[in-house]
């Protein structure tokens, strides 16, 4: 652990929390461009958050303390997960506290709380959303874990820093298994972030929605935190993807110059990643909810195949 490492840790956390809405804004912007619409501006998510924070909270009569504390818990868990994923440097103090499995567990913890909060008021929508979210979750979570496992089989470690260092800072080797893992990861991230083939972030149509159905009862600052957490989640997933598949530019241990250079590299990678996400969303159509298990099952099996391919070709 070095001074640079601690600085990188704080920088990462601050960056993630502050820039996550920007990434969401950028994806929306790209989507609007691709759809030939005039975009609301890249800073729109910040305006929405500022507005929501000012507003009064309207709570249902029977909302329990769990309902009121869930937004903070969810936001806290996702902020922690953002701090765990190496985006700027690999020498992070928190890295020893939580590895890839713990990261998946942390994302699952956030999911558990949002689902429980959705069931708290007891409206039909909330439970429906919770049920669907958990359905997506129980298939997406093991798939994500298998993607991490493929990477950790390659690097002989489940520690995210070691994985990134093994892929980025060693001699360039092509890993065929990562092709499978990459496809699986994209599918999982689309589902986890309620993007288009599974859920549509832009609609409030009852029959199709997952995320929006869960947060229907939230308002004011609670809703702001939930929305902020959602964009953090997208940011975290994007960073996981970059760390696993394009880790180039992430600084090694104790390297101040590397850290400074990692910043523009990250920004560029995120910009490209966001545009790619918008493109994928443009090219695909929303699925029926019953197709979702098939989509996620395919992702899960692809991730398992990635591990097999590693054993076969790279063992």
């Amino acid at each position: 652990m070095s001074a640079a490492g601690i600085a990188a840790q704080f920088a990462e956390l601050a960056l993630a929390v502050l820039l996550a809405p920007l990434l969401t804004g950028w994806v929306n912007q790209c989507r609007a461009w691709l759809q030939n619409k005039s975009a609301p501006g890249i800073l729109q998510p910040y305006r929405v958050l500022a507005k929501l924070f000012q507003k009064e909270v309207i709570l249902a009569h029977n909302a329990s303390p769990l309902f009121r504390s869930a937004p903070y818990l969810i936001f806290g868990s996702l902020a922690l997960s953002a701090a765990i994923v190496p985006t700027l440097g690999t020498d992070l103090p928190l890295n020893e506290a939580a590895d890839a499995i713990a990261l998946v567990g942390l994302l699952a913890l956030a999911r558990l709380f949002i689902a429980l909060a959705a069931m708290d008021v007891g409206t039909a929508f909330g439970t429906l959303g919770a049920r669907r979210e958990m359905m997506v979750g129980f298939l997406a979570e093991p798939a994500l874990l298998m993607v991490f496992f493929t990477a950790s089989l390659i690097s002989h470690s489940t520690s995210l820093s070691t994985i990134v260092a093994a892929i980025a800072h060693r001699e360039l080797v092509i890993y065929p298994s990562m092709a499978f893992a990459g496809v699986a990861f994209v599918m999982v991230s689309l589902a986890e972030n309620a993007r288009i083939p599974i859920d549509n972030p832009a609609t409030h149509l009852e029959l199709t929605m997952i995320h929006e159905a869960m947060v229907l009862e939230y308002s004011g600052r609670h809703l702001a935190l939930i929305e902020w957490a959602a964009s953090l989640k997208l940011f975290v997933h994007m960073c996981i993807g970059l760390a696993l598949f394009f880790p180039f530019g992430i600084a090694g241990g104790g390297d101040w110059l590397g850290l400074v250079l990692a910043l523009p590299a990250l920004a560029a990678k995120l910009a490209v990643g966001g545009a790619a996400l918008a493109l994928i969303e443009m090219l695909s159509a929303k699925m029926r909810i019953f197709r979702a298990p098939e989509f996620l099952g395919t992702a899960f099996l692809l991730a398992v195949l990635a591990m097999l391919v590693h054993v076969m070709l790279e063992g």
Binding site: F75, G76, A83, L94, D99, L106, H156, S157, T158, S159
Partner: peptide, 21 residues
């Protein structure tokens, strides 16, 4: 290097983040 996990640290940081929020 292979794998490490520190629930206590994890818990403290998570709690800290929630409280700060």
């Amino acid at each position: 290097q292979r794998a490490s996990y520190s629930p206590l640290l994890f818990f403290v940081v998570a709690t800290l983040l929630v409280v700060v929020t």
